[in-house]
Design a protein around this nucleic acid. Structure first.
Lengths: 167, 167
DNA sequence: TTTAACTTTCAATAATTTTTGAAAGTTTAA
DNA sequence: TTAAACTTTCAAAAATTATTGAAAGTTAAA
């Protein structure tokens, strides 16, 4: 496997993983490309490399910026805009976890809380709905908290000690 | 909010969350429906409740069974097949985590390992590709292990002590 | 057996999501 | 200013994914 093959394999695999987890392929691939690039890339660079249109590139770069994992880089003397992604994998994970929590998990937790606060009318089906959504609420909130906490630590020491603890 | 409103809210919210995370809406909704049902449901029941076709119901039930979170229930004297989902939220989380890991994360870890084993030809871009995919490999493998470990414990004591530890 | 009750399959259709590309918008150098 | 270089927007098209429904398949009671 040479460099180009490896690069293509990585970028396309990352794109497929994205798709599987509800993230648009182009968005995942652009991020992957920036992640292994040694220098900031322009829109032209990205379009050429991934063979996608200008519009697609522009829209997905914007989304990545909204997520806080890509930033515009101004290169002095250059007219074009250049882009970079967070290079520290730990920080990247932190940001993604935080954003998915805020956008997707928190609203669900809110609904689960509402539903599980339904007044108990004494029927079995109501009792079951309350019980099960409460259980879901608790585990979701718990998992969300834990992921955010974990991802906020410096893995170095914490990972090792945690892994030891729960092994 | 009465029972029916609460039920609809829960089932449709769960469906939307599924979609956001790459799970087909009908599949998520069927699981949600079974999760709050006080008794096993037949295909007819599910079709009527979610207003979806027989084919759709059949295919998604099969997928849920493949995932190991729904099981066929044979009711003596009844010709129809009935279905139930795992009711214990802890066990449910364990199964889902295990399956997503096996189907989606492990293959990606394998590719990351391959790509990061690319022979260093001394160029900067190759060094960067190796470095970054190695970092991604390590964090992905680590996160995958941790989630599986965590989800395999009895939350009771472990959650509390872990939360205390990392707070 | 036969037949009725039920489930699965799958080609066709519908719905949704992604992508394109060209026009409109913006910025900066001259 | 003007105009060239560049970016954004968005309606239309393409691609993908989900859903339907009827025919084929299966099972079990009579």
């Amino acid at each position: 496997m040479n460099y180009d093959e490896a690069k293509i394999k990585f970028v396309s695999t990352w794109g497929s993983l994205g798709t599987l987890w509800g993230i648009n392929k182009a968005m995942a691939q652009i991020q992957a490309l920036l992640f292994i690039s040694t220098k900031p890339l322009s829109m032209e660079d990205i379009m050429a490399d991934l063979k996608i249109s200008r519009g697609n590139t522009s829209m997905n770069l914007r989304q990545l910026m909204d997520w806080g994992i890509v930033t515009k880089e101004i290169i002095p003397g250059e007219r074009k805009e250049y882009f970079t992604t967070e290079k520290d994998v730990q920080e990247l994970a932190r940001t993604i976890a935080k954003e998915r929590s805020r956008r997707e998990i928190q609203p669900v937790i809110k609904v689960l809380k509402e539903v599980s606060s339904l007044k108990d009318d004494g029927t079995e089906k109501t009792k079951e709905l309350i019980k099960q959504t409460k259980a879901l609420h608790d585990i979701t909130e718990n998992a969300d908290m834990m992921i955010n906490k974990l991802v906020n630590q410096q893995q170095n020491w914490i990972t090792k000690s945690l892994l030891k603890l729960i092994k």
